[in-house]
Computed example of a mutant assay.
Amino acid sequence: MTAFPVFDGHNDLVLRLLRGDVSADGVAKGLHDGHIDAPRAQKGGFGGGMFAIFVPSPDDKDLRHDEMKHPPYDIPLPAPVDEAMAADWTGRGFDALEALEAAGAVQLCRSVAEIETALPGPRMAAVAHIEGAEGVDREFARLHDWHARGLRSLGPVWSRPTVWGHGVPFRYPSDPDIGPGLTEAGRALIRECNRLKIMVDLSHLNAAGMEDVAAISDAPLVATHSNAWAVCPHARNLTDRQLDMIRDSDGMVGINFASAFLRPDGRMDAEFGLDIMLRHFDHLVQRLGEDRVGLGSDFDGALVPAGIGDCAGLPNLIEALRSHGVDDGLMARITHGNWMRVLRKTWGEL
């Protein structure tokens, strides 16, 4: 493990397990051909992060990626997902996380103290996150059950509409001011997450929804895997107004490695220099301050820059940041310290 272990805001390894692309033992032994497994995590300094449980739509994600190679684009959002199916899939997502722990690949963490103990390795520190709350019932019984199993972070939507609110489409060029915000049920969900000290992730929420969360929530505003709209005008990215709201709440943003959300031309194409990531970094630091920027790779769920490739390539990003003038103190904050700060504040561990 490197001197700057990375705590990452978002990855989709659990989805790969649930789809049968890899087993928990395969992740532990380094038999995964995606972005994350235990040996590469040790090599690259990937100390862990938010492990997302995401319910996929029946559409073809590869086709969506193909369409995003040719901007401009406006890809229709999938239909809502059935609650019973989503609940079953989400429950199996927790099973997958527990299987990863049993295989020795991760250590499930429910507090900042547990993360900091696990972060140097050899197991990845894993925090359970739900990306899109379709499986949560309106009485919140499942939310409480999953919280007991380790749920500590939740995004009310993944782009497609839910009973809780509305997300942003995969549209370029576009801003995120698209459609209505949270429903009454969504407002109740935010309040219940606040009560349980579950972090609310804004990454896929539209502009009106983010305004609603800001008006309701008593916790820092956090986007676990989003970028600067001023650099790449994609609907998935955050405008300066949104960044200022996050700053004013003492929240943070994890830089998303997805090529289409980094490149100013919005193309889903991995062949570009890490200088583009540094442009997002500079803008986020300018608007948010040095204590409110981290990493949110979207490993195993995105096409990441060829200069990084997978979690073993994180030292290339560290070196690019160092060459850009980032000193040891700021490097520690970007790679993990800022996440520890905002999680400690959100989870009531101050």
Rank of each mutant, 00 (worst) to 15 (best):
M68P: 00
V200I: 14
P71Y: 11
D177Q: 10
N237D: 07
P5W: 12
A28D: 10
Q42D: 03
D240N: 14
G251C: 06
W146P: 03
D310M: 03
P80C: 12
D201K: 01
L143D: 04
D21V: 00
D21Q: 14
F94T: 01
P76M: 01
A102H: 07
M268I: 00
G20T: 07
H225L: 12
F281Y: 15
P76A: 09
H166T: 14
D66T: 08
T239K: 13
D275V: 06
I318Q: 09
V55I: 12
D240Y: 01
R110I: 06
A79M: 10
R142D: 08
H336L: 10
A223V: 12
N194F: 08
H70P: 06
R142C: 01
F170L: 15
A235F: 14
W146H: 05
A87P: 00
K29V: 05
R152V: 08
M199K: 02
H144E: 15
V304S: 10
P58A: 13
D298P: 02
K43Y: 09
L13D: 04
S111P: 00
L350M: 00
I115T: 04
I36E: 02
D282L: 01
W164H: 02
M1T: 02
L221E: 09
L108W: 01
A52D: 06
I36A: 04
A214W: 03
G132P: 09
Q42S: 07
R292G: 05
A320W: 05
